[in-house]
Nucleic acid binder design. Structure first.
Ligand SMILES: [Mn+2]
Ligand SMILES: [Mn+2]
Ligand SMILES: [Mn+2]
Ligand SMILES: [Mn+2]
Lengths: 228, 228
DNA sequence: TTTCTGACTTTGACAAGCCAAAGTCGCAGT
DNA sequence: ACTGCGACTTTGGCTTGTCAAAGTCAGAAA
């Protein structure tokens, strides 16, 4: 059984994988993701290599082994189910649940997790729209596009908010920018590096591209949204 | 903020206090309660003395300081609320919740605890009948007597089961020996060191004194039981 | 009063994590 | 090919929490 420290390293490596490529995560990036100095990360990764959780190439980076990935997915499943439980059952704000889940993800047993999963009706996405891995490690991620890459005047639906920062999440919530919300891109301004959108009944709002990139959307067509 | 190790030491010292006396817990007993060797306990208690959590007298024992007691009560509150949540909301068996709570008691934030408390309707006792300390550290324990010390043929009600062993708890549950259950002592046999009781609709059962001592009861009079 | 014994404390060692700072490596730019 | 620099690794040291084994003490037994 891995320690919670090891679980955190595994999770961060998993999350960093941008595509499904067998690409390596640089040690510096891992260190800052986990919140330790580079030397600490190097030492840790070496011992994790001993236990076959990762593949490490000095001066290149680190990648999960199959066993490592499987463990990472279990941690991620706990994290996201806990987040959803905190929001749906206990009524916490979606901006604050990430920090709480960061602790609880290491303390929830399989049995308790299974009960929470059932209580929530075997959900597939967490409050931020992130997919919840299944108990046997499958991730069914919905296809999505980054908002600034979308055409204007097409109906879109928010799939996911790719940012855990409480301030950003609070702002998003106040503007109706939650998973399932429908919106259209009204204008895209290359020079101002901004995007103007209109959400549901709200007034139009303008976001800088870097903020808009955190909003992942899908085409909404004429169909009804099925949120969560 | 104390580590979870420190929280465990504090909790064990608190639980050991038999009466409300300012008596000392011997180091050997503490060590085995926490599950470490005596040398480890001595070292730990010394550092806890530095932080004014305990009062330590070499070769005599250890006792909680006021600050230590306050922290211990917070841990105990978390433990017992979590146990009740596991039983009442998630439907786990009362025989298995102690172990689960042993981990979760260190991972639950004040905010989450407050929500769970509200969800449960601000309960006063846990699934085993142990009192749940209030948020500001009051413990309202109901008066009780150990079963073997009771008169025969008087109506009694179980207040508390003072044992966390899953086997014992499963046995108790199967025989209707749960908090709130009514029973009478049919016979007390000094020589056989046993007590025969009759619970609700069940057949009479005979318990050895040492097992019966784990059952804490109160007089039931004619009044209706108000369980929990 | 002296001795023995079991409970306790001390000592030395170890594992997991961590940091700071010194050392090394590879590659971008010349 | 050479030099620098930033990213990475190594080294030495620290903290927390633990055990095993050796040393000490107080009270029971003689
Ligand atoms: Mn999160
Ligand atoms: Mn999330
Ligand atoms: Mn318990
Ligand atoms: Mn209990």
């Amino acid at each position: 059984m891995p320690t919670s420290t090891v679980e955190n390293y595994l999770k961060q490596i998993y999350i960093d994988q941008p595509t499904d490529e067998a690409t390596m995560m640089p040690m510096g990036r891992l260190a800052s993701a986990v919140g330790v100095t580079p030397g600490t990360a190097t030492a840790m990764i070496k011992t994790m290599t001993e236990s076959d959780l990762v593949v490490y190439e000095p001066r290149t980076g680190v990648r999960l082994s199959p066993e490592g990935e499987s463990l990472a997915l279990q941690v991620l499943r706990r994290h996201r189910l806990v987040e959803l439980w905190l929001v749906e059952i206990l009524g916490l704000d979606w901006s604050e649940v990430h920090e709480e889940a960061e602790v609880l993800e290491h303390a929830i047993s399989d049995k308790v997790l299974a009960r929470i999963d059932a209580l929530l009706g075997h959900p597939t996405v967490d409050p931020h729209g992130d997919p919840i891995p299944t108990a046997d490690g499958d991730v069914v991620a919905r296809a999505h596009t980054s908002l600034p890459r979308c055409e204007t005047d097409k109906p879109l639906r928010i799939v996911r908010i790719a940012d855990q920062d409480p301030e950003f999440l609070t702002y998003a919530d106040q503007n109706g920018l939650v998973p399932g919300a429908r919106l259209i891109v009204e204008r895209r301004d290359r020079i101002a590096d901004a995007v103007t959108i209109r959400v549901g009944g709200h007034d139009p709002i303008t976001l800088g591209t870097s903020a808009a990139e955190r909003l992942l959307v899908e085409p909404a067509d004429g169909q009804t949204a099925d949120p969560r």
